[in-house]
Amino acid sequence: MHVAPFNIMTLFNEFFKGIVKENPTFRLVLGICPTLAVTTSLDNGLGMGVATTFVLVFSNMFISIVRNIVPKKVRIPIFIVIISTFVTTVELIMAAYVPDIHEALGIFIPLIVVNCIIMGRAEAFASKAQVLPAVADGLGMGIGFTMAVSIISGVREIIGSGTILGYEIMFSGYSPAVIMILPPGAFITMGLILCFFKYMGNLLGRKV
């Protein structure tokens, strides 16, 4: 088992790789359900991003702590228990302090449990890494996810309702394209953004 040497540079690397190089949404295309379902407005997207980041950081941390005492055969159920504990915690906290967002996200808060990003990071990284790198990885992935969700929900909110965070920003007389906040709009936005990244990747790749 390879354990990364312990220094600041590797921590930074673990942190930044989740934001750009291995962005969970745009590069690895993981955890698509919440990315499409709750991105009808920027505040919902941000709420989802922050909740997921919280769960990612803490589940990565705990999984890394218990990684040496958990027998290999039962590691998946144990990961599931740890992850769902933090998901329920987030759910209760959101219900208590930001009830509006809690209501808007609805069933997708408990569904963070089955978000492939979290299980994927637990399995591929946290169960093999020391605590600090695991936390850095979770934080980076979480921020990468939050950014992706914010971009998608921002685009959808601006085009679909002509507002951003509830404030009117489009010129007067703009009639919102409602389709963008309906289910098809989610697929269209995601498809076009992925296409854009791929196109940029092709362009840059050709130069190098």
Binding site: K73, V74, S84, T89, L92
Partner: peptide
């Protein structure tokens, strides 16, 4: 036996932690 112990302990810890959070947030909710 080790597997069972680890599983049960994890579940118990999770349950206790969640009950604590539940009691703390109950009034606010």
């Amino acid at each position: 036996r080790k597997m069972l112990t680890v599983l049960i302990t994890t579940c118990l810890c999770a349950a206790v932690a969640l009950c604590l959070v539940f009691v703390m947030t109950k009034d606010d909710i």
